[in-house]
Write a protein that binds this DNA or RNA. Structure first.
Length: 540
RNA sequence: GCUCGUGUGGUGUAGUUCGGCCCAUCAUGUCGCCCUCUCGAGGCGACGACCCGGGUUCAAAUCCCGGCACGAGCACCA
């Protein structure tokens, strides 16, 4: 009926008709069987036999009010630390929309707070670099709010001059009381001239911190108290790591962001839904200036199961207190950590794009990201053997087996997507064979992967056959002669668990990711001078 | 308390704009099987959801009303 709108008015009659027909079909079916019905339908309308599955919309939804080539988006982090997994959502979504509409992304550093969340001077470069890693290209425009101060101060002054902004000298507590009661600040109705005098005192530093703020005049009887005469600029006398002590007055996010979005011609803002009131405040400001506010979309809060509540400032503190080794500590939810561990940026993109844009608060699992990552890297990842907590086995074998012993050729990748073989010279080295402690069982029959069935009593093993003869457990193993010491660090909540063992020393390269057979994916971070291989866990 | 927002399987998502192609998509997860001499990859299958209650309608995940739950904002932070 969705196809034949013309029939809708006859819906009632149709229903009766259909019911009788269904009844008839059922009778035929019970009399002659379903096969018969199927044959009839085959003649009548073969399509009816195919059940259509619904099609899933893929990719990002359409941006409202957008013209290709004219879309300008922005990503505006606070440079008080490097990017976290959460930030990467903003980068991925914005850059993807820019790609879809042939638009631009402005990377803007919202660094106008010198006190509560002071900028970290290194973070500017880190973030630019991380942006590039995630998206594969540089942002189209990079802006530091702190360097745009003259612009903001000019607009602030214009606002005061025009009479829709004023200097309020109430304490924050006083104003809160007035606001909640819907009453005006005593400074609300002063003339622009009076306000300009106070504004000058704010600017030159004679007015001290906390003694005054510039407010945007909205209305004191707005239903949402948060929007009533909201603060736009306040006094901060701290030094700013980028521009020093040049400015005594700094804009707050709502003002700075609103002005800069307009200056940059931003057409679409995608932000967290915690910023919904920010949108409303800014719209009121835009009305004063007579500007058109960008289209705005929101996403909900994201929680990563494996990581509890991490904040940038919290991490900064913990790093300072040596609880973590740095921003790239493998237990931290930072992009630095993910990169260090060997995650692929495409996997990160796929992951966020799959989640898309929704205002729901979500809890996500690293497992999902890991699954995306495996798909990206598996085919290009070489296999190696790593034996944790090695146990030495003394092997013996018969004359017959001795005659057929030959070097093993093990493929770098079972599907051959990584070319080449590793050669294991077994004949002369079989006496020093190692298996994992966890696989060791003092009385068992095992299959040494790709090599032989053995039976084991204590540490004495006998080769029963080179061919696989039964379903006995397959374990991985290593010859001491082709191994070197290695250590694998695995992040586990707030701990790092480290496994010592021996790794197959065939062509190991720093920075490469390997799949340790029967263990998982890991990256070689460093090969130490003494030959020990330091590895970091990626995922299973 | 005030203001705003969101409810689809364990998790995440499609479908909601404009009611009918929806006995609800896809992924992840769990379980089972196949393949593979890895616990990886691949293949096949199973499991599992429209927050609740009313209403409108021939027809409701979709529209309306009322609950309930969860979340956010109410900073001289971003």
């Amino acid at each position: 009926m969705s196809e034949r709108k013309d029939l809708r008015e006859f819906a009632k009659d149709l229903k009766n008709l259909i019911e009788t027909e269904v009844e008839r079909a059922n009778q035929i079916a019970s009399a002659k069987g379903l096969i018969y019905i199927r044959d009839v339908l085959e003649e009548l309308d073969p399509d009816a036999l195919v059940r259509k599955k619904q099609i899933r919309r893929s990719g990002l939804p359409d941006l409202p009010n957008s013209t290709s080539g004219e879309v300008v988006l922005r990503f505006a982090p606070n440079p008080n630390g490097p990017l976290t997994i959460g930030h990467s959502r903003g980068i991925v979504i914005n850059s993807q929309f820019a790609k879809k509409y042939n638009g631009k992304v402005v990377l803007r550093f919202d660094d106008t707070d010198t006190k509560v969340k002071p900028p970290l001077i290194d973070a500017y470069e880190w973030i630019e670099e991380e942006y590039e890693w995630i998206t594969g290209k540089r942002p189209d425009v990079v802006i530091r709010a702190s360097e745009r101060m003259p612009v903001y101060l000019e607009y602030a002054e214009a606002m005061i001059r025009e009479g829709f902004g004023y200097v309020c000298k109430c304490s924050s507590l006083q104003f809160k009381k007035l606001r909640d009661a819907g009453e005006s600040s005593p400074y609300r109705n002063r003339t622009p001239r009076e306000n300009l005098v106070d504004w000058a005192k704010m600017i030159d530093g004679t007015m001290r911190e906390g003694e005054g703020v510039v407010r945007v005049k909205t209305s004191m009887d707005l239903p949402n108290p948060a929007l009533r005469d909201w603060p736009a600029l306040r006094i901060q006398h701290n030094d700013h790591p980028v521009v020093g002590n040049k400015y005594k007055v700094w804009p707050l996010l709502d003002f700075q962001s609103a002005i800069e979005d307009h200056e940059q011609g931003v057409t679409h803002i995608i932000r967290g839904k915690d910023l919904m009131d920010s949108t409303r405040k800014q719209k009121l400001l835009y009305e004063h200036f007579g500007w058109k506010y960008p289209e705005t979309m929101y996403w909900g809060r994201v929680k990563v199961f494996e990581f509890g509540g991490f904040s940038t400032s919290g991490m900064k503190l913990s790093i300072l207190e040596n609880e973590y080794t740095g921003w790239d500590d493998i237990r931290l939810p930072t992009i630095k950590s993910l990169r260090r561990r060997g995650f692929d940026s495409d996997a990160l993109r796929d992951f966020w794009l799959d989640l898309g844009l929704s205002q729901k608060d979500i809890s996500i699992s690293m497992q999902t990201l890991e699954s995306f990552n495996v798909k990206k890297i598996d085919s290009s990842t070489s296999r190696r053997t790593f034996v944790r907590n090695p146990v030495q086995i003394n092997l013996s074998w018969s004359k017959e087996i001795n005659d057929i012993l030959a070097p093993l050729e093990l493929a770098n990748h079972p599907e051959g997507t990584v070319k080449g073989n590793r050669i294991w010279p077994i004949q002369e080295n079989l006496d020093s064979l190692l298996i994992e402690f966890d696989d060791f069982d003092s009385n068992s029959k095992l299959r040494l992967k790709d090599f032989a069935d053995i039976s084991l009593i204590k540490n004495e093993g006998i080769i029963e056959s080179l061919e696989r003869t039964d379903k006995r457990r397959i374990i991985h193993w290593l010859l001491e002669s082709i191994s070197c010491k290695a250590i694998l660090h695995i992040p586990d909540g707030n701990e790092v668990v480290s496994y010592e063992g021996l790794i197959e020393n065939y062509n190991l390269e720093e920075g490469n990711i390997y799949q340790l057979e029967r263990v998982g994916f890991a990256k070689i971070e460093k090969i130490l001078k003494n030959g020990i291989v330091e590895m970091i866990w990626l995922h299973g």
